[in-house]
Design a protein around this nucleic acid. Structure first.
Lengths: 211, 211
DNA sequence: ATATAATGTGACCGATGGGTCATGTTTGGC
DNA sequence: GCCAAACATGACCCATCGGTCACATTATAT
């Protein structure tokens, strides 16, 4: 947790600091991320940063928290009462919007989720909450008869998040490489891809023997 | 590439150096990985390390190469002429053996594949080769009529590697956390899990409407 | 044996960068 | 206007660590 001083700052200044931190940690990771550079890009003195945060680690941890809260505030409320497949679909869709609106934050968070920048278990704890949510959706899906019951919930969760993660990663990669091209096609260009992935999640990659 | 001096060393000494490097980089990552500690654990002077390698980066890169060659020599030759699902299954099975025999190396390589320790693109290039192999298997599977043809090869590859990666990760995690318990059950305890994952890859997680 | 090359060694150097602090500057209560 | 508390600042400190080098030791050749 940052010190009180940090929360006494104006919203704009706080945001400027956090964005400078996101940018730096995204570019260089935690170890190589330079506190001096962050303060410079935030337009404050290095000493000031240490009035806001105990140390580099606390700054990083709060950067993660701030980024995720940013998206939760903006997007996540929307997908509360869906079933699993709707949730996954909306999740992909959201990611498109997120990348368009906040490329750096989205990329940074993706890296955190992928477990780059190994810093602390408290980040892991945060991610665990997301897993629990998926597990709840899976249980619900089994009750509904949407999801096959012969396979363990945890394994289903692993399967779902693994496949999802990979396609998110690929889309973010393309977004970060060719910013222009990515914008060009609009969402529709990606919708097909995402629907295909949903198909795979539901029906697998094996040739169907029936229907 | 290491210097000639390194290859003049006895096999045992070379292995000792490489294992010390794996251990250090696994524990602390690239940036925080300490060259002094590596030389100490290898039982040589730091100066000697710099007779073998140009610098830390070269040492790390060769550590990756050495680790993967280690497994390729020992295991990979076995799974050359399988179809996709056999390949995936054998791949999982191998991983179990690998973790049992060489936990540290297996964990280290997994981290490399997951993209922790961002050091160089040359590692990426190496990983690309593995992707191409999967793509070849997918093409073959489509010809055979084993794999549905209505979905793009790249997406299928993404789907397969994503799901596989996740379960590998989870198994390695358990292996690294509770070494004892993991050994206890023997391979059979995991075989069920892996078969279930194969099922998911083939048929997906949706409740089947037919057959 | 002796000369020469190859290899081993660890004290040392120098850059980097996280973190501090003495000194300003602003704010708010009276 | 005055004072004290809160906040801002950046030159400075110092631990860390990658990399070097002068010297010691070992192997090879003649």
């Amino acid at each position: 947790m940052p010190k009180d001083t940090f929360f006494n700052l104006s919203d704009e200044k706080r945001e400027k600091v956090m964005r400078a931190a996101v940018s730096e940690f995204l570019k260089h990771g935690f170890e190589k991320g330079n506190v001096g550079a962050i303060s410079k890009n935030a337009g404050i003195a290095k000493g000031s940063l240490y009035q806001y945060f105990e140390n580099k680690k606390e700054l990083f941890l709060y950067t993660v928290q701030w980024s995720s809260e940013f998206f939760i505030r903006k997007y996540d409320s929307r997908l509360l009462d869906f079933d699993l497949f709707d949730y996954a679909y909306m999740n992909f869709r959201q990611m498109y919007e997120q990348v368009m609106a906040e490329k750096e934050l989205a990329l940074f968070l993706q890296n955190v989720i992928l477990g780059k920048y190994t810093v602390d278990d408290s980040v892991r704890a945060m991610l665990k909450a997301a897993d629990e949510f998926v597990l709840r959706l899976i249980a619900k899906g089994k009750e509904n008869g949407q999801i096959r019951k012969d396979i363990d919930d945890d394994l289903l969760a692993l399967f779902l998040t693994g496949a999802s993660m990979k396609i998110k990663e690929s889309i973010l990669e393309r977004a970060s490489a060719g910013g222009r091209d990515f914008l060009a096609g609009g969402y529709e260009a990606y919708d097909g891809e995402i629907k295909a992935m949903m198909e795979l999640l539901k029906n697998g990659m094996g040739e169907k023997k029936c229907l």
